[in-house]
Amino acid sequence: MKNRSLISINDYSKEEILHILKIAEEFEANPRQKILENHVIASLFFEPSTRTRLSFESAIMQLGGKVIGFTDASSSSVKKGESLRDTIETISLYSDLIVMRHPLEGSSRFASELNDTPVINAGDGANQHPTQCLLDLYSIMQTQNTLDGLDIALVGDLKYGRTVHSLVIALSMFKNTRFHLVSPFELKLPRSIKDFIIANGHTYEQYTDISQVIEKTDILYMTRIQQERFADQLEYERVKNSYILENSMLENSRDNLRILHPMPRVNEIDENVDTNEKAHYFQQAQNGVFVRQALLASILGLR
């Protein structure tokens, strides 16, 4: 995968995804290896995203690499009207690899095709965020020892949630996933993605009540429900408290159940869940560092 950009999770085959997850295991066991000592990585955040940026920068620095870049567009030449093409062409000359986040959709694909410097997409608008998807897969693999034949419950905003869509598409590369889709009526998973599930030989069921799935799933993937997504504010008021996970609700869940969340959470997972051994969302965030280390090492030809 040397010198290959990662823009969309669909750019990688199942084998390539498994290869990255395998390398990530090595970094989980030993995250501080000075393999990037002679490398400069550009971290270009055209819009702020503190969590993603810090995760990437931590991944780079723990491997001994140097970071250049900016944390939002206001502090760069972009503000003076420089085109994305010029920014990328210039910074490519200063760095071995570019990590970029940009509010416009397709911007990372465009940047990756300008020259030979590989690009990792850290989010392009509502389009793709493939490293989030990889860390989700890694967290599932880490807790279930497989990506085949799992019961995966997805909870919350399944209509607009980019993270959920990518995860469904990625899991569909594996075998016999049973998706349990829990959302308010207004925020159901789009038809096109449900068709994709069926076309790839998996199954799904839809629910509006989280308690209907807790006892029959291996993964409980929670997401935020945003008020502004509702056309009908009364509907929001009616449903907002029915998608909150409390520790007491987990009593009869499977032993191997693990709870994931792309973070940040607002109130959809009560803090009383945090000490339950089934809570895995902080570990999941940390996995982001290992997966990003694996990607950097792989793209730079070091693994």
Binding site: S83, L84, R85, P103, L104, E105, G106, S107, R109, F110, D124, G125, A126
Partner: peptide, 12 residues
Amino acid sequence: INPKCITNHQKV
């Protein structure tokens, strides 16, 4: 069709 697409904002 996407108003947030890079092609609708820059010379692409």
